[in-house]
Design a protein around this nucleic acid. Structure first.
Lengths: 221, 221, 221, 221
DNA sequence: TATGAATGAGCTTTCATTCAT
DNA sequence: AATGAATGAAAGCTCATTCAT
């Protein structure tokens, strides 16, 4: 619905692929019934907000602009959302990729530790890439919006938990030796987030390889 | 590092440790004063902007509020700065802690590798803590302000460079074995930044210890 | 034509003959009213702008003052017009008296040349008088606003063209002898404009008579 | 002093020659005494104001801009002039070209009527061209500034008087026949002003020729 | 006499939000 | 349920003018 927006034109340099809209298949309208229309309007507003918040930030995005981008009348925005803040909150709650992330990280990698870490990292990057707009919004708006910060925190801790658990399993199996699997997991995740969402100059995919190798080798004193 | 940040939200008198102004004692006075005090209106504006940008973000801080906080008339803000954006730019350029950071990181640690990494980390955290407001502004405003992003990028790369060089030296001396000292440095720095400025729930000082230990030990396959 | 112009300087209720609004009875009401009245907020803003631009000039008229005069909230001005300049542009384009002027000048005078010129002059003055505010705005704002200048230029040239064509017709019929009917037309028009809109000290109606007589007689060497 | 301003660059299209500064020879500083310096500063301010008022209009020119253009500190503007309005008033009074115009028009043309009118017209255009900036300011600012309007009115009436007197003389000598020499003079002058200062699309020099010829020939019924 | 910092009113414009229909 | 006009507070910024030195 939003794939062909000429939005990229005059704004921030576009990083390759477009920031995603909601990834759940927006089904082609089978019944043009008014009910489904309604839902679509609300989703279109969320789509537009997601795109604009990710690109320009919450403060720099007006509700008028959201309505334009969504192709709905101005008033409709406040019909569906009590206020602007609520758009953001609904966005990060309804379109959280926490479940998707947990699911994909939990699929235990059937490989040797090095390849396994690589695999977990790739999966995390894949999710973040697929849901880049939401991920960027979480990063950008956390300092200003406690609700967003909390959700973002929860996602990080969940990922660290899952990866840490994998590491503990590997230690138990004797594949790895490490005293602090949770710290390893945290270091690992922070680096992926930094490379994928904060430091534009880093190629996350390549950096992942370096990180895995380095962490496994360690620094021998 | 700044757990009570949200608490200060709205007032002038600051409880607890203030987000630093430029590190030189300059008492803020509200009534126009002669000579030596006079000259500092511009600095007071920068002080106020630094505080408010760090606490609330650039977009959420009005120039009027800055003037109030600085104790100067509204118009004076635009006498010293062409526009609001210029306040931010001058702030991060005139108060960059790049020189301080480079100086302090370059003081070679005369100790064994483990203690040395710990020491470098502590120094970095010390600088960031001393210049917390500027550091937070760099982090927060980078997505919206290319000039800020570039400066922040430069600081990170400089730190990575210095730490990486130290590691190379240690490798040459046979104190360490690592194939990718620059990656080690990057991992190290990203983690410190994340812990100090992004993830409010982490105690950076303590995390530093965990990171150093973990990285040295590595994960033995 | 407008000797008491300076007198109105500053208030709302207008003494004597008002500078015209668009020529269709539209009573100005201040309290929001239903349906038919509602639609006219935009017109009321144009009415107010027309009056104030004519009296005080574009630069000296604030949009706030326009809103007051129109009896609408400040914000509504920018709901209907993208910016202040656009008010002026829409004003001169939507309320141009070019069509009216062309129509009235084209009604061929069925009289002898002298009376005919007099008649054409009177018609022109009548239009300018009826649309005095717009005419004054065209004169005043042309130096600053190319769009206005171009429109005003077009109106002059059109009038010169029509009058010139009449003169050519009269020459063909043998009623007049003149080598340069277009120059005659231009001289004629410039004088009417000057007398009606520029030189406040001249009585345009009376001056018209003098001009016609003088031009017909010529200056015999 | 102002000849090499790069002022024309981004503003109104420059009409060939630059808008003049005051034409009285600014003598090369023989004595660098402070007294003459003072006078120069005031004149530089008037030079700058003259240039900017002519180009952009009074309202659109800030006193700060005038000071910049004059190369003097902001405060000095209000040291020499009580307020902004006073700059304009002093400008048109101290740099009026009324005397110059009267002098040059009074030099009786020693030629036949046709050539004489041409000559008078040329002289008037020459003065207006030499003092174009002041002339444009008189035209532009008259609607807003009664003092300017009055001075401009006086100049027109004086020119009409002189030309009218010449015509009366020519009639007395039997060189011309006309019932209303003053109307002739007024028509003549209005046209020159319109062509020189109002209608940018007209070539005043050439139009002068057409006007002279046409007026002498008249329109024979 | 000269200056540049200071002042605050006022400007154009934006905006989230409301509301009658 | 949906809409677009309405609202007014507040934003960034400009400006003529003042004033201490």
């Amino acid at each position: 619905m939003n794939d062909d927006l000429d939005l990229w034109g005059d704004r921030v340099a576009k990083p390759g692929k477009p920031l995603e809209a909601v990834p759940s298949g927006r089904k082609s309208r089978r019944s043009p019934a008014p009910a489904s229309e309604q839902v679509q309007a609300r989703q279109r507003i969320l789509d537009a907000a997601q795109l604009l918040f990710a690109l320009q930030g919450f403060d720099a995005t007006s509700t008028k602009r959201i309505a334009q981008e969504a192709g709905v009348p101005q008033g409709l925005v406040f019909y569906y959302f009590a206020n602007k803040e609520k758009i953001l909150e609904d966005l990060v709650s309804e379109r959280s990729f926490l479940p998707e992330m947990e699911r994909i990280l939990r699929m235990a990698p059937q490989v040797q530790p090095k390849e396994a870490l690589h695999e977990l990292g790739r999966r995390f990057l894949a999710v973040v890439t697929r849901r880049e707009a939401i991920a960027r919004i979480l990063v950008r708006e956390s300092p200003n919006h406690p609700q967003v910060a909390q959700r973002w925190h929860q996602m990080r801790e969940s990922a660290i938990d899952i990866i840490g658990n994998y590491l503990k399993g590997a230690v138990d199996l004797g594949h790895l030796h490490t005293a602090q699997p949770d710290t390893i997991a945290r270091i690992f995740l922070y680096n992926l987030i930094f490379a994928a969402l904060i430091d534009e100059a880093v190629d996350a995919e390549q950096y992942l390889g370096d990180v895995v190798q380095t962490m496994l080798e360690g620094i021998v004193e």
